[in-house]
């Protein structure tokens, strides 16, 4: 069916045993921001189609935990911690757990080849996916936070801080999730690690820290989502200490940068085998 003989082609056919030609002009490289935007858009559309039921699950889980905890905590600081922890748990469910699963499966099924054979910066793939998963958590997190405030009688005035908490905690957790998914030797392991990470966020983030043994508190300090939870919890007080809120958010952002950098490195490693 190939009707065009090779030697009538534009540019002239090269003789057999052609001598090494000058290196030809390479196609363009995709720049970071446009390709990040393209990946983000594609991932968000995927998430919309396939993940909405899971977002409901995440939200119901957090709402359920708050209802359970109502009988346990005695208002005040503990209630603030429970509401903040449950809200950030939605982020952990999607950004850490689901993203770890996604990258684990993509890697195992050879889906990374698609991105690896496009001239796209690794950071664009990782950040685009992480960003999409983090934005996808917004409605669930907001619903959980509002419900929690009403349930425990906390003020709604400073909920705007979620606009900083979600992206920063989202970056930290999504980076962690992506790295786990890309580094896990098998997709089952990636799923398991994602689940474990989420359980950790649940236990360490939602349960009041004061009641925990020392070792667990140390683990809590190591979990990136903790600082998002703390920053959020502080804003419920009558006179929030904004400097410490900012400090916690800064730690969260710093961990986010590190974990996304690790995820990008993991992507590079996974893409070329």
């Amino acid at each position: 069916m190939s009707v065009v003989p090779a030697d009538v082609l534009p540019g002239g056919a090269l003789a057999v045993g052609e001598t090494a030609p000058e290196p030809a002009g390479l196609g363009p490289r995709a720049r970071l921001w446009p390709s990040l935007a393209a990946v983000y858009r594609a991932q968000l559309s995927r998430a919309r189609v396939a993940r909405i039921p899971l977002l409901f699950v995440a939200t119901f889980q957090s709402v359920g935990i708050m209802i359970l905890m109502r009988g346990v905590v005695d208002g005040g600081g503990e209630a603030q911690a429970v509401v903040a922890g449950s809200s950030v748990l939605v982020v952990a469910f999607v950004a850490l757990n689901l993203l770890a699963q996604y990258f684990g499966q993509l890697r195992a099924s050879g889906g990374l080849d698609h991105y690896a054979t496009l001239p796209v910066p690794p950071a664009a793939v990782v950040l685009g996916a992480a960003g999409a998963y983090a934005s996808f958590t917004v409605p669930g997190t907001v619903v959980t936070a509002v419900f929690g405030c009403v349930l425990f009688g906390l003020p709604l005035a400073h909920l705007w801080v979620l606009a900083a908490v979600i992206p920063l905690a989202g970056a930290a957790l999504a980076g962690l999730g992506a790295a786990l998914g890309l580094l896990a030797p098998r997709p089952e392991t990636a799923t398991l690690l994602g689940q474990l990470g989420m359980s950790a966020a649940l236990l360490l983030g939602v349960l009041p820290a004061e009641r925990m043994p020392e070792a667990v508190r140390l683990a809590r300090d190591l979990l990136p989502s903790t600082y998002g939870v703390e920053a959020f919890a502080r804003t419920f007080g009558p006179h929030p200490d904004w400097a410490r809120v900012l400090g916690d958010l800064a730690v969260c952002g710093g961990v986010g940068v590190i974990s996304l950098a690790v995820a990008t490195w993991a992507y590079r490693r996974a893409a070329v085998r």
Binding site: R29, Q105, L106, G110, G111, D113, H114, A116, P119
Partner: peptide, 13 residues
């Protein structure tokens, strides 16, 4: 990736 387009056996991405 700047010279060629690749169609692999998998489409999961």
């Amino acid at each position: 990736s700047r010279i060629l387009a690749y169609l692999g056996q998998e489409s999961t991405a």
